[in-house]
Nucleic acid binder design. Structure first.
Lengths: 140, 140
DNA sequence: TATTATTATCTCAGATTCAAGATAATTTAA
DNA sequence: TTAAATTATCTTGAATCTGAGATAATAATA
């Protein structure tokens, strides 16, 4: 009877992603943001105005959580809800000036931090890693 | 101004681990277990009797969450708490017969499922992936 | 037009998590 | 031996997440 999971790629992959997740969580705590909050801000920062559902699709959380996290960020003054004139069911969300300014500060730090985590890999290794991970990702 | 994260290894790594996590979550939902609950059972199944703290160290959640998840599993009759005779602060946790039987069923399914997710890689590729991930993990 | 289905968001209850502090037992050191 | 520090677990309260269902608007179809 095999009691222990001995699929090493699996174990190491999950360890690595967990470590990265924890590291980012700590970084974002410095800015008083949860990872979910940061993810929402990141989507808006990259793509500009989005509907709530578009954001939800990007970061894959439930509609109940979306309402909650958008509420929180609105209370912090980092984004604003705007009714859509064409479809009154829809709400557009955009970063406020404060939100944009905050992201202008946070994003370079975030990118540096992410790059640091992967700087032990040279270009070839990074490419290999991407190829192998894609093979796994696309089968899961 | 770089608004988008273009660190491809990072993005693909997080996508892959998230997909795997979701897949396992779905598998475990069939057994009416959350991933945290399964992780606790897995530790006990592998290592036998453990203290609450030992389990917590393995799966890295807070002591408050440990109490909660152990309570749930105890209510389901899958494990039992036992006072430690040598140190009355300590509580030993073991799988009940029901818990053991359940794990005897779940674990082979779980291993198959994990192996499936990685079967697109041959042995060389799996080894390369492990090496590259370790390089990242150990720097984070 | 009237009916039905779909869509987008919100509400709410319940589950899960963590942090801080409480409790109680043990170990260490004066 | 007593006091202080450490350790293991539990309690509590706040934060966050999910899922089910409500609401309201729009689209599709007869």
């Amino acid at each position: 009877m095999e009691r222990k999971c001995n699929n090493l790629p699996f174990l190491i992959l999950m360890q690595t992603s967990k470590a990265i997740h924890e590291r980012i969580k700590e970084e974002m705590a410095k800015n008083k943001l949860s990872i979910t909050e940061f993810s929402v801000l990141e989507v808006l920062y990259q793509k500009g105005k989005q509907t709530i559902q578009q954001i939800g699709n990007c970061i894959l959380i439930s509609s109940g959580s979306m309402t909650y996290v958008i509420d929180k960020l609105e209370q912090k003054g980092l984004l604003s809800r705007n009714a859509c004139p064409d479809d009154r069911r829809v709400i557009h969300v955009t970063l406020t000036d404060d939100g944009n300014e905050l992201m202008n500060v946070i994003m370079p730090e975030y990118h540096d931090s992410v790059n640091q985590m992967f700087e032990s890999l040279d270009d070839d290794e990074a490419e290999t890693l991407v190829q192998l991970l894609k093979k796994v990702r696309d089968i899961v």
